[in-house]
Design a binder for these strands. Structure first.
Length: 433
DNA sequence: TCTGGGGTCCTGCGGCTG
DNA sequence: TCTGCAGCCGCAGGACCC
């Protein structure tokens, strides 16, 4: 999803330019979440509407173009968005609906070419070299996709057509909303060089500031700067990467989905928390959620990391690599709690905690060495049974007893470090259903 | 202005090992 | 046995993306 930071208004929208050699399409849905919500609530059409968290700490996930006219943008704090556009209707996100719409859109893409690389729910790269005989040139394919998506899904999208992924992506940003732009292979440099440096993939606020201090404001400025200068200022990898992009060099190919390298979950508290019992309870919940997703992806991970964000927004991470890969919530939690306890935070005020499992590899074929005295069935099997129950009865049907507390979802177990898995009087397994 | 949640990649440092 | 070195790995932090 475009975060609205890239390019100024430029060339006219619509088909133009020679598409010879332009085999990469970048398709980006326009205000995707908001557009899907409008399908469900047509009475809001033409009105400013914002999709985002309704709490005091949410951010804007998506906004209609009517709201954007007031300055509302993606990732903006909701409090600011409300000030900018008080009359906007705020809708909490319904990710299920977005996933469903996304699947429909991706299906359309795959009817053109199997070489589809989704970047998120609402955008993807397509390599259309193998489709030109059936559909015509890349520009015609882009037009067909735009028309079909609008016809079948009721939402509009923008398409960039170019000889590389990076330029195609800039192209779609350039013609938003509801446009198509071809950047001819021999016109890439002329297209790129007037753009601000922030248009480049990999230039965020910090890098832009560094470049500004060097007197570099446009991509053309960047291209004219020796790569060694950029490497000294930004590091060898980033320096050479940006130098190449500034000349339109981007050799990355369109690659249909690769498995995740890490899976995690994090949660911002509605108010800052200084009670370690609440933090531990949250770590348990996040460990459970993360491990379940790791199991669902048929992978196991070797490193467990936690993330702690303090009230002043400073953030630290701690990680531990295990002797053996895991997908077991109990192991993830034990590791996470060990990392947390080692910090000795006591009454520090925390804003967010997170748990992540890294170093993922396919679960199949992972030889598992039993520890001395360990039974060959145990927590993994128990958690797999829980996964089956969850699929059948819904999320939360079975969960650790320590998380069953209908009166106060944030209240932690009493008395010291919790052992939520330890069998208690209610359930021998420590789980409750 | 006051900052979500899901990720990836890069860099620097220290410890270990051959 | 000690030292210097290179390479690898684990770890932590930061920047960036959608």
């Amino acid at each position: 999803m475009s975060r609205g930071r890239v390019v100024p208004a430029g060339p006219p929208k619509g088909p133009a330019g020679d598409d010879t050699g332009c085999h990469v399409l970048h398709v980006d849905m326009d205000a995707f979440y908001a557009s899907v919500e409008l399908l469900r609530r047509p009475e809001l059409r033409g009105k400013p509407m914002i999709v985002g968290g309704d709490g005091s700490r949410g951010v804007v996930l998506s906004a209609t173009y009517e709201a954007r006219r007031f300055g509302v943008a993606s990732a903006m704090p909701m409090s600011r968005a409300r000030r900018l556009c008080p009359e906007a209707v705020v809708i909490p996100p319904t990710f299920g609906a977005y996933s469903e719409a996304s699947a429909g859109v991706m299906e359309i893409f795959r009817s053109v070419t199997p070489l589809v690389e989704p970047l998120s729910l609402d955008e993807a790269f397509l390599d259309v070299r193998g489709a030109t005989r059936r559909f015509g040139g890349p520009r015609l394919i882009g037009e067909w996709i735009r028309a079909t998506v609008e016809d079948e899904q009721g939402i509009t999208c923008s398409v960039g057509v170019a000889s590389s992924k990076f330029v195609a992506k800039l192209g779609s940003a350039h013609c938003k909303p509801d446009g198509l732009l071809v950047v001819p292979a021999d016109g890439v440099v002329a297209f790129l060089h007037p753009l601000p440096v922030a248009a480049l993939w990999g230039v965020g606020d910090k890098t832009e500031e560094v470049l500004r201090k060097l007197g570099l404001h446009t991509v053309g400025d960047l291209a004219a700067t020796p790569v060694q200068t950029l490497q000294r200022a930004l590091g060898p990898a980033v320096g050479s990467h940006l130098s190449a992009l500034a000349w339109g060099r981007d050799d990355r190919v369109v690659t249909p989905t690769e498995p995740d390298k890490s899976i995690g979950a994090e949660e911002t508290f509605p108010v800052d928390i200084d009670d370690p019992r609440v933090v531990r309870r949250e770590l348990l919940r996040l460990s459970e959620r993360t491990a379940a997703r790791v199991r669902a992806s048929h992978q196991v991970g070797r490193t467990v990391s936690i993330k702690i964000r303090f009230a002043d927004f400073t953030t630290i991470t701690r990680s531990k690599t295990l002797p053996e890969s895991t997908d077991v919530g109990r192991v993830v939690y034990a590791t996470a709690i060990g990392l947390y306890d080692a910090l000795g935070l006591e009454r520090a005020r925390l804003r967010l905690v997170g748990v992540r499992v890294e170093g993922l590899a396919p679960a199949e074929g992972q030889a598992r060495q039993l520890l001395l005295g360990e039974r060959d069935t145990g927590w993994r099997e128990a958690e797999q049974a829980i996964d089956r129950a969850t699929r059948r009865f819904g999320a939360g049907a079975v969960r650790p007893a320590a998380l069953v507390d209908p009166d106060d979802p944030l209240r932690g177990p009493r008395g010291g470090t919790p052992s939520p898995y330890r069998p208690d009087k209610r359930s021998r397994s420590g789980y409750s259903s």
